[in-house]
Design a protein around this nucleic acid. Structure first.
Lengths: 114, 114
DNA sequence: ACTTACGGTAAGTTATGACTTACACAAGCC
DNA sequence: GGCTTGTGTAAGTCATAACTTACCGTAAGT
């Protein structure tokens, strides 16, 4: 069971780091081994390895060992979890926004009922 | 023009902090002034103010001054920008994933042409 | 006008985590 | 069996940023 899907908050935290976002960007168009991933980034290869561990732990990446290489790829399920989280947040934001607008337009004295 | 819509990467970076995610969570169900927002969090009110500034700068929040209070709310457009970013990432992830699967099933010698 | 409530800003401290070098380990090649 | 390639891990350094206290401005109430 390579299937992790932890809470998406962890994934967001992982994407908070710019180097990790760069790694994800480099994986958008296809899987890559660690070496190629590091070549093109400004940090050392061990640093990339550490970032890959973090990203894998959140379920955003998955590994496919091929001989001595370890090929990393975006994990669709991880990205999907993030999408679901943001969709729900979006939904709540719209609802709250609409409620706020309603409170401000229709009832003229429902200002601050406290 | 209160309309910001910066690159969503900044918003993701902002959400990397757990306290800021807590703030966003507290705003899911409706707008709140700074004081109420801070009450319920483990950090001091000035800390909350600083986080609110970061979140507002990324376009995730907007302010509605009401007298001496400043009421913060989720900015639908900011959340939407994040959603679009992740949707595109999701799309690329699926495409890359499908391509990978194809490479592994159909052509038996398209392994690593290099 | 004075006072109180509310919240943003400055300055300084501290903790977190991103980075480096050095090392260890597994898989293929001679 | 060594040698090379590819990568993960350990240990330690350093920079970033999150937090605190103290202070200041502004809006409302009396």
């Amino acid at each position: 069971m390579t299937y992790t899907s932890p809470n998406p908050e962890t994934a967001i935290a992982a994407l908070g780091d710019p180097t990790r976002r760069a790694i994800v960007e480099r994986l958008r168009h296809g899987a890559l081994p660690v070496g190629e991933l590091a070549h093109g980034l400004t940090v050392s290869r061990p640093a990339v390895s550490q970032h890959l561990k973090v990203l894998s732990d959140t379920g955003l990446l998955e590994v496919m060992p091929q001989g001595t290489r370890r090929v990393y790829a975006l994990a669709p399920e991880g990205v999907a979890a993030l999408r679901r989280y943001l969709d729900a947040l979006w939904d709540d934001a719209l609802t709250a926004f609409a409620a706020e607008a309603r409170r401000r337009t229709s009832p003229p004295d429902t200002e601050t009922p406290e």
